[in-house]
Amino acid sequence: MRQYLCLVVEDSKTMRAMLAESLARIPGMEVVEAENGLAGIRALATQQFDLVVTDVNMPVMDGLKLVRHVRGDPRHEKTPIVIITTESAPNDRDRAMALGANAYIEKPIQAPRVIRAVKRLLEV
């Protein structure tokens, strides 16, 4: 039975699959996938999510704009946001955290790290 609904926003199909597969190990977790920030906003317009996991660098609309949008929307302003960053781009990470992201996970994606970060935020 679904307990949590998570939005995963990531342009890479491979990374999206890795994130979705990692999150699916959390009991009760259901995942909705979006391939860029704009698709993420469309999903947010129709559903209430317990968590948003987003990449930063994406075509069409990047993750920073998505974070800004989520934090500016009263319906989602308290929704926890996890950003996916690279060690080589600390500025992106810092900007996303300053905009209101709650946690970050560095690539390469490792399932235990994803699960740990998400469980902490959801207090599972």
């Binding site: 679904r2 890479s12 199909k13 491979t14 999206r16 699959a17 979705a20 597969e21 699916a24 259901e30 995942v31 909705v32 996938e33 979006a34 391939e35 698709a39 993420g40 469309r42 999903a43």
Partner: peptide
Amino acid sequence: GASGNGPGVPLSKKRV
């Protein structure tokens, strides 16, 4: 064709 969602990914996934 390539897909991120192959065997092993739970069927509860949806794609926007």
